[in-house]
């Protein structure tokens, strides 16, 4: 895990996000409060279009809320410049998406090492080998995304998110396109990562995935959320 925020806490207060559409404004997030600590594996569930992905984007510093504050420890990411926020993201945050979003013209190892371009260091090569082995992709390291199965793609995307040992991982439906066995590998990996002291936030519909976390955020019909801890 990154040492930059060893006493890392994510605190969101009064987060509101509205999208404008032809039919009128759509309130996706309304007055959301959330506080997360190291080691939390948070699952987020709710009906489609309830705002799970938007919440991940806002918390992941990719989409500025209309109102409310977001703090990572003492840092307010939306108070930083776009480049400062990009740098913050590169050092602290990893993303995993349902559709993997691997770069099609890079092989597995190159995809995994992509975040290293922004934060180069000497141990990236051994770290990528370690991740390849951990996720069972060693013999696929020179393969391109279109030569991989869905499970392999998601494992490669997970390895990419873990390369720089971010303090927090955002996963948006990471098992949505996977069979049960591959889904299990991904969930175990995320759970282990949270156990090692990181924070994992995962939006999912998958009931097996929902049971993996130690904290659960449920989107209500009225746009509010309920946070349950186990």
């Amino acid at each position: 895990m990154s040492d930059n925020n060893s006493e890392f806490t994510l605190r969101a207060q009064g987060i509101t996000k509205t999208y404008s559409a032809k039919s009128g404004a759509i309130n996706v997030l309304e007055d959301i409060d959330l506080e997360l600590s190291k080691g939390d594996f948070v699952t987020i569930s709710g009906p489609s279009g309830c705002g799970k992905s938007t919440l991940l984007m806002v918390l992941g510093t990719l989409q500025e809320p209309d109102s409310g504050t977001l703090k990572y420890g003492d840092i307010t990411p939306y108070g930083l410049s776009p480049s400062g926020r990009a740098e913050f993201r590169s050092k602290n945050i990893g993303f995993v998406f349902q559709d993997f979003n691997l770069v099609p013209y890079l092989d597995v190892r190159e995809n995994i090492m992509c975040p290293g371009i922004v934060n180069p260091s000497a141990d990236l090569e051994p770290r990528s080998s370690e991740l390849l082995e951990m996720l069972g992709l060693t013999d696929r390291s020179n393969h391109y995304p279109d030569q991989l199965s869905s499970g392999e793609k998601q494992r490669a995307a997970l390895a990419r998110a873990l390369l720089l040992r971010p303090s927090i991982i955002f996963a948006d439906e990471p098992t949505g396109n996977l069979d049960q066995s591959n889904g299990r590998v991904v969930l175990d990996c995320l759970a282990n990562y949270a156990e090692d002291g990181a924070t994992v936030i995962m939006a999912t519909h998958d009931s097996a995935a929902l049971s993996s976390g130690n904290k659960h955020v449920q989107f209500n019909e009225g746009k509010g959320i309920t946070v349950k801890s186990e």
């Binding site: 992941g60 990719l62 776009p82 480049s83 990009a86 740098e87 913050f88 993201r89 590169s90 050092k91 945050i93 993303f95 998406f97 979003n101 770069v103 099609p104 992509c114 975040p115 371009i117 922004v118 934060n119 990419r160």
Partner: peptide, 16 residues
């Protein structure tokens, strides 16, 4: 666009 988006999410700044 997706690739550029994911690179942006990874922390690639505008200049890069």
């Amino acid at each position: 666009s997706v690739e550029i988006g994911i690179l942006g999410a990874m922390g690639f700044g505008g200049t890069k």
